[in-house]
Each structure stands twice: as structure tokens, then as C-alpha cells.
């Protein structure tokens, strides 16, 4: 079986700085794998081990996504091969256009039976790319997945929705979006990271990117919230201040 996992490479929000004019400055930001996509990678890796399948990562991002540390990070987590489009032409895509690029990679990755996606990326958190990818490939889609077992031509999934848990059989090939609960990311060891450097990394430029359906008009820092910021190191003064305030 071929398992693919989609993950997004983005700037670390801890490194975002606010410039004097209120704009967001990403220039000092490290590239990282979006937080909940690490869970998706782990889920795919475990399913790959359980079924003896290959696990390949597919990713679409800005030119900066072609970062050797991040690529090794992905490949140190039980992933066999990486397919990445890293190009500023694919830096700010909407969910439909992202899915269209991922679909190209899914086909380039020598076919797929199961595509795992994370719950949502840290930048937009739209939770839409998985379903758009399923629509693009014309395959079934389920979200909220916490468990999956492959039985021949279907995958049996437990999906945790807001008010109900559903047990479903999803015909392969399909796209499943997992909840972070489904698998906790491993901590890769030195050996895994060294081995990752020798795994195949297919990095390509964008080609024929679809016109966006959604575009960014402006990006700015949020309005600051006014707080007193009285910080104490002495417990008695702190308790007294809280008591006076309440």
C-alpha cells in the first residue's frame, strides 16, 4: 500500500516580529513543520509500520520551505520519501489551489491508497485542504479520525465529531484528516536524523499554478490589549494585589 501524508512548512510563529508600522516581520523566522501536521506524519508512519506500506510526505510551500533541517525533520519521522514544491508562486495559496498542487504531487509520488492530512495548519487553520484534495482526486474524505485499520479495500476509521463518535468504513483510495489526539509525534533520535539525510527528497518549482480564488488584502499585528502588567516575585505582595483587585 502507498500511504501519503500532506504537511505544511511554515515560519515558526514564535519568531514573528511586529515592525514599527504594525506589519508582521517574518524575516527572522525559522521554518518548521506546522504543529498538527507532525501528528499526521506520526499517524501515517504508524499505519505504514502496521501495514508494511511505504510512507511518503507531500508538501507545497514558499521557496523558504526548501530548508534542509526541515526536510530532514520530516524524513526522520518514519517517512521514506519527500515530494515538495517550494516556490514563492505557491507561498500564499488558498485551500483549493493548495489541494491542486498536492494532487499533482500525489500523482508524482507513484500513486496513493491513503492520504493522511492534519487537522489544520497553524497559519490559516482553515481545515479545508483535505476535503479539497479529496474533491480534486474524486475520492472519499473523512475528518476527525482518531483510529484507522486497513481491511483489504477499505479503511475502518473512528471519527470523533463534536457530539458523536462514528465508526465508518472508507473505500480506498481516500483522504483522512486526523485529530491531534490520534498520534503523538515521536522525538527523532540522532540516528534517524542522519538516516533522513540519505532519503530521497524531490524538490521542484511550481508550474501552472491556478489563479487564486482567495487572496490576501492585508496582514497586520493584532490590536494590543491594555493590561496593568504588575508582576511580583514575592508571594505576599502578589496575593495582596490580587485581593485588592477582586
Amino acid at each position: 500500500m502507498n500511504i501519503l501524508v500532506a504537511c505544511k512548512i511554515i515560519p515558526d510563529d514564535q519568531d514573528i516580529q511586529i515592525a514599527g508600522d504594525g506589519s508582521l516581520d517574518f524575516s527572522k523566522a525559522h521554518q518548521i513543520v506546522s504543529e498538527y501536521d507532525l501528528n499526521a506524519i506520526e499517524f501515517a508512519a504508524q499505519l505504514g509500520e502496521a501495514t508494511g506500506s511505504s510512507v511518503k510526505a507531500i508538501s507545497v510551500g514558499a521557496a523558504a520551505a526548501d530548508d534542509s533541517k526541515v526536510k530532514k525533520n520530516i524524513l526522520s519521522r518514519g517517512v521514506d520519501e519527500l515530494f515538495l514544491i517550494a516556490d514563492d508562486a505557491t507561498a500564499d495559496l488558498d485551500s483549493a489551489a493548495t489541494a491542486a498542487e498536492l494532487a499533482k504531487l500525489a500523482n508524482a509520488a507513484d500513486g496513493y491508497d491513503l492520504i493522511v492530512v492534519g487537522t489544520g495548519s497553524a497559519d490559516f487553520y482553515a481545515k479545508q485542504v483535505g476535503v479539497h484534495l479529496a474533491a480534486k482526486l474524486d475520492v472519499p474524505y473523512v475528518s476527525g479520525v482518531t483510529k484507522a485499520t486497513v481491511n483489504g479495500s477499505t479503511v475502518s476509521c473512528t471519527r470523533v465529531l463534536e457530539n458523536v463518535v462514528e465508526n465508518v468504513d472508507v473505500p480506498l483510495p481516500c483522504v483522512v484528516s486526523i485529530l491531534p489526539d490520534a498520534a503523538l509525534p515521536r522525538i527523532a533520535g540522532m540516528k534517524d536524523i542522519l538516516a533522513a539525510g540519505k532519503k530521497p527528497m524531490n524538490v521542484s518549482a511550481a508550474e501552472g499554478v491556478a489563479a487564486p480564488a482567495v487572496s490576501t488584502v492585508s496582514l497586520a499585528a493584532p490590536a494590543a490589549v491594555d493590561r496593568k502588567c504588575e508582576v511580583f516575585e514575592d508571594i505576599d505582595s502578589f496575593v495582596a494585589a490580587v485581593k485588592a483587585a477582586l
Binding site: 485551500s95 483549493a96 490559516f124 482553515a126 479545508q128 476535503v131 474533491a135 473523512v142 475528518s143 476527525g144
Partner: peptide, 20 residues
């Protein structure tokens, strides 16, 4: 989750994407 799936499929069919 279910409305998110439905709006995803609908916008895909319409050639657009949702602003989340």
C-alpha cells in the same frame, strides 16, 4: 466537522475556496 466537509466539497465544485 460535517459542515466543514460540505463547504469544502461545495466550494471545490464551484471553483472557489472558503475564507475560514
Amino acid at each position: 466537522l460535517r459542515p466543514l466537509s460540505l463547504v469544502g466539497r461545495l466550494t471545490a465544485a464551484l471553483g472557489t475556496a472558503a475564507i475560514a
